[in-house]
């Protein structure tokens, strides 16, 4: 049996005492693309933050195994080194930190962890050029401070570029499609598709079915109020598009319960 890339069991997580994830189960095998859809506030970003290792969220119950190791035992940076990548819904701007320097530090920290030689400046720039091309990212952006002065679309493309650069086993994309026009969306989707491989898995969080026309998922899950209430294949996304989320409420009504 293959070791799952990601195996989340009965995950409960809370922030400042409020429970947000209420028993999430999810298994991603190598090579698979899983999509998580859900209304605003259902806990999608919370789930991605918990996977990435955000300390503001307390895991009160359950487990996350990554490639056979207990992910919850690792710090955020160790998770990244082990092969987890999160493309943020809202990539933060960091004044004073040059994108290029920061990414060189990141690439080499990860290579060191994986027992690979650190890249020198030349090799690093070659790699950057190659990966930037794959998402049509203007390489001059990398001379700016991290995400500073990037347009909304540039931020999202830069996240996918970073993913390509850091070469993870698991890519979690948190609404990487939101705010993109159709051309930008195609570029981002293409960038992700190029990274698909038999070893790599993806969790693609989205609010809209639209993205899934371009990144075709193996499975679609509906997250509502901190729980996965329905799972299916890609046709589930079309049902959602048509009927809306209300149909998936545990009680079936359209009230706020």
């Amino acid at each position: 049996m293959t070791t799952p890339l990601l195996e989340i069991k009965n995950l409960h997580a809370s922030v400042e005492g409020t429970e947000i994830l209420k028993g999430v189960n999810l298994t991603v095998l190598p090579g698979e693309v899983h999509s998580i859809m859900g209304p605003n506030g259902s806990g999608k970003s919370t789930l991605s933050s918990v996977i990435a290792g955000h300390e503001a969220y307390d895991v009160t119950e359950g487990s996350i195994m990554f490639n056979g190791i207990d992910l919850l035992e690792l710090e955020a940076d160790q998770r990244a080194c082990a092969g987890v990548f999160l493309a943020f819904q809202y990539p933060i701007e960091i004044p004073g930190v040059s994108t290029k320097f920061f990414l060189k530090a990141a690439v080499n920290a990860i290579r060191k962890y994986r027992g690979q030689d650190e890249l020198d400046a030349m090799d690093f720039l070659d790699l950057v050029e190659e990966k930037a091309k794959s998402v049509n990212l203007n390489i001059e952006l990398l001379d700016r401070n991290v995400n500073q002065g990037f347009s909304g679309g540039e931020k999202k493309r830069a996240e996918v570029f970073q993913m390509a650069l850091l070469d993870p086993l698991l890519g979690v994309l948190d609404e990487t499609d939101s705010g993109l026009d159709i051309d930008a969306l195609k570029i981002v989707a293409e960038g992700v598709n190029k990274l698909r491989s038999p070893e790599r898995g993806f969790v693609v969080i989205t609010h809209y079915q639209r993205l899934l026309d371009y990144i075709i998922p193996d499975f679609v899950h509906v997250l509502m109020d901190g729980q996965i209430v329905k799972s299916g294949d890609k046709s589930l996304a079309l049902v959602l598009e048509e009927k809306g989320y209300a149909a998936f409420k545990p009680c079936g009504c359209s009230c706020g319960c």
Partner: peptide
Amino acid sequence: LYLQTRGIPAEAARTLLIYAF
């Protein structure tokens, strides 16, 4: 967190932010 999720250890990430400031 952003820096850490890119593989940079917490201590170095803190220093990078102080330095940047």
